[in-house]
Design a protein around this nucleic acid. Structure first.
Lengths: 113, 113
DNA sequence: TTGACATATTCCCATATAGGCATGTATTGT
DNA sequence: ACAATACATGCCTATATGGGAATATGTCAA
């Protein structure tokens, strides 16, 4: 079996740096495809393909206005990622405390035990 | 060009569900490979390969003890993901407000700046 | 040394890209 | 209808898997 499809979920979709750039850009305000092409200096077909992936996993929404398609980031679809990473927050916080304790011990400031 | 390597960064590494499971499991406490195999019901070579990827991007640390290799999640390496997703927090918060607020303005969507 | 145990690596294969290029489609203006 | 604009999709290729099976490596015990 090969790697999971980028359209399988948000985790796979945001693994691509270009797509994260697009999401960042479209979070500020909705934009037509041409704006993304200009702003991020990517090929138009490439942008369209990335948008397709992002749309398939619900990370962006699209709206047609005449010849243009306006896309915007659907931040809500990023919440699962945020929540998953958040479960590790207490662990790195714990690690920071450890580093701090060690530093204090080395400086002989407050020796425990 | 193909997709970026899973070892290119943490974003690519955690795109795989099995690897996220491993990270969750190893966050609680360090474990030898065999425990992961039993707990997550994966093939041993598969676990070793995933651990290799996770180690290459710094998401886990390893320590040998006799014949066993103890792995543990390095939560700190997950912070960049947490921070990236966090930049969207205010947007989904904003979207929640919008749901209540059905007011609609239709213009000024795309202006080049 | 020999054998057993715990992991790691290699090989093979089907699959899923992502980029470049060409082309198709939808919409508007004349 | 025809041309132009704005996107979307198709095709091709090099590449990077991830799973399974087999094998290699490392460590300890007798």
């Amino acid at each position: 079996m090969a790697r999971a499809a980028t359209t399988s979920d948000a985790f796979n979709a945001v693994a691509e740096p270009r797509r994260r750039e697009i999401l960042n850009y479209l979070a500020l305000q909705e934009r037509p495809v041409g704006d993304i092409v200009d702003a991020l200096e990517m090929e138009q077909p490439s942008v369209s393909k990335h948008l397709r992936v992002l749309k398939d996993v619900g990370l962006v929404r699209a709206r047609r206005e005449g010849r243009q398609m306006f896309y915007r980031t659907n931040a809500d679809a990023i919440r699962p990622l945020h929540e998953w990473t958040e479960t590790f927050e207490r662990y790195w916080r714990h690690q920071l405390l450890k580093v701090k304790d060690q530093a204090e011990e080395k400086s002989g400031a407050s020796k425990k035990e």
